[in-house]
């Protein structure tokens, strides 16, 4: 059990700057004056290089704040004109999954994408995928958001982009897959509250058609080839379907190119330049 940190009665007198007292109560540690020139100003012009944050005992204010608030020290990084959206673990949908799952929460990712579209400082979005799939609706919602953005988007599949990760991967303007990354394509299975009547089959078929329509509409693979991959037998031990690794996904037309983060960022920068030349016209 970890004692002595964050307790309301402040008895901790260790020599570290971590303390319940705010910076204003520690004049020696942090003589902060908001009117003093040289402080970084939140209203500053976006194009200008922000002023160097004030240093106290070798640490910037942000570092002390993050130690105090979170117990970690994060090094403030320079602002980038691209944003990186990571889709990891299960894409969580309408049901909160048990805590052993690593999840991507769609209710947070969707407004983030709105903010990225709206923010003038952000010029492009890199989507990094290492996902085992997840909720069909949530995955398709994220895919539709990404594909309808006016800013350049590049996706990179690292490790895996399985099941509903496939439409997310192809939703970007340009897609990359790492040489060893894999994508599992298999039919949508029965789970959740679905009643076992003939209509169940039709319902699942409709769900599947949504995924197939999205993937064929946003990549070079055609419907027959995708269905063949989906219903192939003998590839997977416990299921029908197939696994595409690196170059195979490119050969099938699902992904545009084999590459890593270097190629993905270079492509994104090229797309940003292209968009600037076309005076902000959409890439669609």
């Amino acid at each position: 059990m970890f004692h002595g940190y964050g307790e309301p009665n402040e008895k901790y007198t260790g020599g570290t700057p971590v303390s319940e007292n705010g910076p204003e109560n520690q004049p020696d540690l942090y003589p902060y004056d908001p009117d003093e020139p040289g402080e970084s100003d939140p209203d500053e012009c976006p194009g200008e290089q922000p002023a160097q944050p004030r240093r106290v005992q070798g640490k910037t204010r942000e570092v002390i704040e993050s130690i105090k608030e979170m117990g970690t020290s994060e090094v403030p990084a320079p602002k980038s004109s691209i944003h990186c959206l990571t889709i990891v673990g299960q894409i969580e949908g309408h049901l909160v999954l048990p805590p052993q799952n690593k999840t991507t929460k769609y209710e947070h990712v969707i407004p983030q994408l709105v903010a990225l579209e709206d923010n003038n400082e952000i010029e492009g979005i890199l989507i990094i995928l290492n996902t085992v799939g997840g909720d069909v609706e949530a995955g398709l919602a994220i895919s539709e958001m990404i594909t309808s953005m006016s800013k350049p988007t590049v996706s990179l599949v690292l490790g895996g982009g399985h099941s509903i990760g496939v439409p997310v991967a192809v939703s970007a303007n340009y897609s990359f897959i790492a040489e060893t990354a894999s994508m599992t394509i298999h039919p949508i299975r029965l789970n959740g509250l679905v009643i076992g009547v003939p209509q169940t089959y039709e319902y699942l078929d409709k769900m599947q058609d949504r995924v197939i329509r999205f993937v064929t509409g946003h990549s070079k693979i055609d419907e027959a080839a995708l269905r063949e991959l989906m219903f192939r037998t003998g590839d997977l031990a416990r299921d029908i379907g197939s696994v595409l690794i690196g170059k195979e996904a490119v050969d099938k037309g699902l992904i545009d190119e084999v590459g890593g983060v270097g190629e993905a960022v270079a492509k994104l920068k090229a797309l940003i330049e292209e968009r600037k030349k076309n005076k902000g016209e959409s890439l669609h």
């Binding site: 299960q90 799939g133 909720d135 069909v136």
Partner: peptide
Amino acid sequence: MILYTPMQ
């Protein structure tokens, strides 16, 4: 809700 995942 339909989960589309290769995980068990």
